[in-house]
Computed example of a mutant assay.
Amino acid sequence: MASVWAITLLGPARQRRSHNDDDHHTSKEEDIDLGPEPCIFTSTIPAWNCRNLERLASKTVSPLVFAHVRASTEGALADSNCHPFSRGALMWMHNGGIGGWKLGVKRRLVSDVGDRWFEAVGGSTDSEWAFALFLDSLERLGVDADDEVRQRDGFGHVVLRKAMLRAIERINGFIAALPAETREQGDVRCLLNFAVTDGKSVVCTRYVSSRTDEAASLFFSSGTSWKMQPSSETGKGAGKTQLGTGEYKMERRDRGADIVLVASEPLTFERDNWVTVPTNSVLTIHNQTVLIHPILDQYYNHTPSFLRSRGFAIAQGQTAEDRKAAITRENSAAALDGTAKEVAVA
Rank of each mutant, 00 (worst) to 15 (best):
A2Y: 02
A6M: 06
L10A: 10
G11T: 01
P12C: 13
Q15I: 05
D21Q: 02
D23Y: 02
H24W: 04
K28D: 14
D33S: 08
L34S: 13
G35M: 09
E37T: 13
E37R: 10
T44K: 09
A47K: 11
A47Q: 08
N49S: 11
C50D: 15
C50E: 15
R51T: 15
R51P: 04
K59W: 04
T60I: 01
L64N: 09
F66M: 02
H68D: 15
R70S: 07
A71G: 12
T73M: 01
T73C: 03
E74T: 15
E74L: 08
A78G: 13
D79R: 11
F85H: 03
G88A: 15
M91A: 04
M91S: 15
H94T: 08
N95F: 09
G97K: 01
G100Y: 09
K102W: 10
L103P: 03
K106A: 08
R108P: 05
R108G: 11
L109Y: 06
V110H: 08
S111E: 15
V113G: 05
R116F: 12
A120F: 00
V121P: 12
V121K: 12
V121A: 10
S124H: 06
T125C: 07
D126F: 03
E128T: 14
E128K: 03
W129K: 12
W129E: 05
D136K: 07
S137G: 09
S137K: 09
E139Q: 13
G142T: 05
G142A: 02
D146T: 14
R152A: 10
F155K: 13
V158N: 13
V159K: 02
R161P: 07
K162C: 09
K162Y: 10
M164S: 10
E169S: 12
E169P: 01
I171C: 06
N172H: 01
F174T: 08
I175M: 01
A180Q: 14
R183N: 02
G186E: 14
V188E: 06
V188F: 06
L192S: 07
F194P: 00
S201N: 10
V203Y: 09
C204D: 00
T205I: 03
S210W: 05
S210G: 07
T212D: 04
A215K: 06
S217P: 01
L218Y: 01
L218F: 08
F219S: 06
F219H: 09
F220L: 03
S225I: 09
Q229V: 05
P230N: 11
P230Y: 12
S231N: 11
S232R: 06
G237T: 02
G237H: 06
A238T: 11
G239C: 05
G239F: 00
G246D: 15
Y248E: 05
R252G: 00
R252Q: 12
R253T: 15
D258R: 07
D258L: 01
L261S: 13
V262N: 12
V262P: 08
V262K: 01
F269G: 13
N273S: 14
W274P: 11
V275M: 04
T279I: 05
V282K: 07
T284Y: 01
T289P: 03
V290P: 10
L291I: 14
Q298K: 07
F306W: 03
S309D: 03
F312N: 14
I314E: 03
I314A: 07
Q316D: 12
G317I: 06
G317T: 13
A320M: 00
I327Y: 02
T328P: 01
E330W: 03
E330T: 05
A333L: 00
K341V: 06
K341C: 04
V343P: 10
A344E: 14
A346Q: 13
A346I: 14
